[in-house]
Amino acid sequence: MGLVIIIVIAALVVAAVGGYNSLVSLRNQVQNAWAQIDVQLKRRHDLIPNLIEAVKGYMQFERDTLTQVVEARAHAISAPDQASRVQAENQLTAGLGRLLAVMENYPQLKSDQTVLRLQEELTTTENQLSFARQAYNDLVMRLNTRIEVFPTNLIATQFGFHEVELLKAAPEDQAVPKVDLSLGTKQA
């Protein structure tokens, strides 16, 4: 009888350790995915001034679009907390989507090597950002499910694992499909 109890307790301990470790591993993966997003955000912050500088001369009539992007970038960099930062970055994504779309109306941009290079770099950064966000959300969903379902929910509450919020895309962002230069005809 004593042996049975010991075996049951041992099995419970093993299960608990396994559940705890899976939670930790998922949480680390979520953090890592967030770091990925951060890398792309930094990259686009660095790219924007160069791009604006390069296209400014050609795009006299798009002052609004350009200033919108510059302002959104400034907001994103100086955002005091996570929530307002996410919001500012979403605005920046929407603004950049518009800018890249409008750039299609300026055929003379196509012959400027610097612009082409920056445009390609910004496009891939935007795409990587959206894929990184997608991966982040997938992981967050898995972590949240793990935290909610039995029996890991017992361990989660015991050791202070909290559900993480999904990154929502800005409403405008959903209307703008993934930035695609080669098609060019797609309208937002």
Binding site: E120, T124, N127, Q128, A135
Partner: peptide
């Protein structure tokens, strides 16, 4: 562009 797309899919 091809190199960039490979990088994009690696992120995905």
């Amino acid at each position: 562009t091809v190199l960039n797309v490979i990088q994009e899919m690696a992120v995905a």
